[in-house]
Simulated assay, not measured.
Amino acid sequence: MADAICSNVMLDLETMGKGPDAAIVAIGACTFDIAAGKIGTAYYNRVDLATAVSCGGVIDASTVTWWLQQGDEARSEIAREGGMHIAEVLRSFEVWMDRHTHDAEVWGNGASFDNVVLRGAYTRNGTSAPWAWWNDRCYRTVKALHRDVPMERLGTHHNALDDAISQALHLIAMLNPKEAG
């Protein structure tokens, strides 16, 4: 499925804030097919925090404090050198979406977080998000409706790509339990 054009994307952001204008430090995403129960292509990039802030992203102290309490792997991943300028990451994500999706439903963990924050970053950078607003989907809502379906975490918790893949697999298990796995 890695080369297929998909209509579902799971998005996960790591940020330094909680509001709609939160400064983004990493974007992870994967395409997936609910009916086939498969994960497709993946996207991951780290953002240079200084560029996220210079382009209007906001840092809040409580989120920084929260990050200080997270695991070493997750913290070191967002802190290491080499993050790209936010504008470059946004363009890169747009190119990835164009190559691997068509009229994608973009799932985020919370109706007011991942999709909203990323859409806001695009707006602050003078461009539009690479998906239609009516295709925003809320993974957290589905999760609340299927509390009996356990989530299996893969990789590092609070790594944007690992979280996106774990969430996509969990969503598949909830919406198409016969195909999960």
Rank of each mutant, 00 (worst) to 15 (best):
E14G: 03
E14M: 01
T15S: 13
G17L: 03
G19A: 12
G19F: 04
P20I: 10
D21F: 09
D21M: 06
D21C: 08
A22H: 11
A22T: 06
A22M: 07
I24R: 10
I24G: 05
I27C: 00
A29W: 08
C30R: 05
T31Y: 13
T31K: 13
D33H: 09
D33N: 14
I34D: 03
A35N: 10
A36I: 05
A36N: 03
A36G: 11
G37N: 09
K38N: 13
K38C: 13
I39N: 07
I39F: 08
T41E: 11
T41R: 09
A42V: 07
A42E: 11
A42G: 06
A42P: 06
Y43R: 00
Y44G: 02
Y44Q: 12
N45S: 12
N45L: 06
R46D: 03
V47K: 02
D48I: 04
D48K: 11
D48T: 06
L49S: 08
L49K: 06
L49C: 07
L49I: 10
A50W: 10
A50T: 12
T51M: 01
A52D: 01
V53K: 04
S54G: 10
C55K: 15
G56S: 10
G57T: 01
V58C: 02
D60H: 02
D60I: 00
A61V: 12
S62K: 01
S62C: 01
S62M: 00
V64K: 09
V64T: 12
T65V: 04
W66G: 04
W66M: 00
W66P: 04
W66H: 13
W67D: 00
W67S: 03
L68F: 06
L68P: 07
Q70I: 05
E73R: 13
E73S: 13
E73H: 11
A74Q: 12
A74H: 11
A74M: 05
R75A: 08
R75T: 10
S76H: 15
I78V: 14
I78P: 03
R80W: 10
R80C: 13
E81L: 10
E81Q: 13
E81T: 12
G82I: 04
M84S: 12
H85P: 14
I86L: 03
I86M: 12
